[in-house]
Amino acid sequence: MTAKVMTVTSGKGGVGKTTATANIGVALALIGQKVVCIDSDIGLRNLDVVMGLENRIVYDLVDVVEGRARLRQAMIKDKRLPELYLIPAAQTRDKTAISPSDMVRICDELRPEVDWILIDSPAGIERGFRNAIAASDTAIIVTNPEVSAVRDADRIIGLLEAEEKGPGKLVINRIKPELVERGDMLATADILEILAVDLLGLIPEDESVLISTNRGNPAALDPKSKAGQAFRDIAGRLMGEPVPFPSLDGTDSLRKRLARLMRRGGES
């Protein structure tokens, strides 16, 4: 095996990087891929709680870097899926506890063992971001349909290009089709036109994400979750399958649009 190393990043905080990392990791593991998720947000670790593995941490990433643990010892095995692992961040240290070359060394050691290494990046564009992208082959940029998140995504795409990490692929999270439909949320096409980057996934706003995160069971494990399905679609695309993108613009068909307009026309 030679793993593909992907960094999940966004620039702006709170857009769903950690949720995306956990769910894409789960979705890949569901189709039999061997996956290691690494939380590189030293001092603000969260991937452990989102994946529901917080009670099983013994060693963390900094323990590996500083030689207190072997890589294997820091890999927490997910009990729900046979081939999913988490390497948690240290909670009591800061970004300077690891360096970009540490990340390269750790990923090089993991590469022959697994299919995918997903690195959850901290917000921002400083040291933590540099650590997160140092070892990556490519990046997944997570954004929301909001001006601040799209602006920061653009900055990140520029930085990735400057680091020759490629333009990356975009995941648009928390889309509300009804808001797009009435013209109060940026549509997928608008965001793609502005950022000029390839699309990897469209995630609808879905309360099942909050509920599943509350329980520590990523939504990708829930067959009924719409967001979970969107993450499973992403895993399929990462495997090279031509999974079509559902329209989350609320304007699937002209007939539907006309029907709605006539209805509204009647009201006024």
Partner: peptide, 11 residues
Amino acid sequence: SSARTAKERLI
């Protein structure tokens, strides 16, 4: 629409 304004401002 506010989305249109958002797009133009972003550009």
